[in-house]
Amino acid sequence: MDSTIILQTTLNGLMIGGVYALVAVGLTLIFGVMKIVNFAQGEFVMLGMYVSWALATFVGIGPYPGLLIVAVIMFVGGWLTFKLLIIRIIGKSDEAFILLTLGLSIFLQNITLLAFGADYLTVTTTVKDAAIRFGGLAISLPRLIAFGVALVMVAALTLFLNRTDTGRAMRATAESREVATLLGIDPVSCFAVAFGVGTVMAGIAGVLLTPMFYVYPGVGTLFNTTAFIVVVLGGMGSLTGALVGGLLIGIVEALGGTFVSLDLSQLFAFLIFLAVLFVRPSGLFGRSA
């Protein structure tokens, strides 16, 4: 086997893994603070892709210049979803949350289908086919940008959580709602911020993916599964775990897809997932219960 191909494939996987990590970090943030899994996270990725596509198609703003606009739209969308829907079931059972977010996921897919049809849409950017070459390897520019932006977003989130009062309040709420309340922190507003930021993460991931993926109503399901695997693999609630897990799944999928079969690439993600959980049931960076 040619070592250049292995290296090249690993590199491609690593780049896409950065985007998986971004989606998973958003999911982890919501899970960590609220202790609930958002099953509509993949659909927020899909919506990010559509907003990005709409901006490029109707307004003429490309994915990268439009990043900030999409981030703002997604934050407002996430915040409204929280205020209109999620807030009603806080303190209720986990089942209520699963049903609500699953329902939201189906609703979002179908409303997009109704609005834009089932066609596969594409967004073209000037950098779509550009690549950076070195030593026989090549990285396509959209992948590199996706990787870079994803890492910057994760770093920014980490700084936010560690260095700001709101971030500390969110970590306090994640550990104990009651103690947070006794310190004068409103847990529900922390939930709102976590949900909003988690949605932004997914939306940005969507934007970063549009130059590489087709945009269609069902595209989110791809990321729902992957993000969920990454979150559990990394250790529920651990941001570092989500980051490392995302990169790992990206690489494993790419290697499996290239050397065995492209159709089976997700199978390898599941295999590594099971293998890791077999050795470390609480995930790579999870705290054992």
Partner: peptide, 15 residues
Amino acid sequence: LTQLTVKDNLLLGGY
């Protein structure tokens, strides 16, 4: 808050 540093605990005391 066991997962937060001593300093972060104190900073949140003055939240």
